[in-house]
């Protein structure tokens, strides 16, 4: 069973590389049971989108 610390590392790596099958399953299980990590995963997507907008000239 992943700890939240380990899960957050995988949720970051998910933005940079394809996770293996075992990693994906472990993460899926963890996120299903952990509201904090579930939110964290959404936050990673928000960060990516914010960076995309900021970096493409959307910065104010």
């Amino acid at each position: 069973m992943l700890s939240c610390r380990e899960a957050t590392a995988l949720m970051s790596q998910e933005q940079d590389r394809h996770l293996g099958m075992a990693e994906r399953m472990a993460l899926r299980l963890h996120v299903l049971m952990c509201a904090g990590c579930n939110n964290y995963r959404r936050q990673m997507n928000v960060l990516r989108e914010a960076c995309r907008r900021f970096g493409s000239g959307g910065m104010q």
Binding site: S3, C4, R5, E6, A35, G36, C37, N39, Y40, R42, Q43, V46, E49, A50
Partner: peptide, 19 residues
């Protein structure tokens, strides 16, 4: 994180409303 690697209760990520 606390010692076993789970979120400290005060640090648990929240749902970000309407990004």
């Amino acid at each position: 994180f606390e010692a076993r690697g789970h979120w400290q209760p005060s640090a648990r990520p929240m749902r970000w409303a309407d990004p």
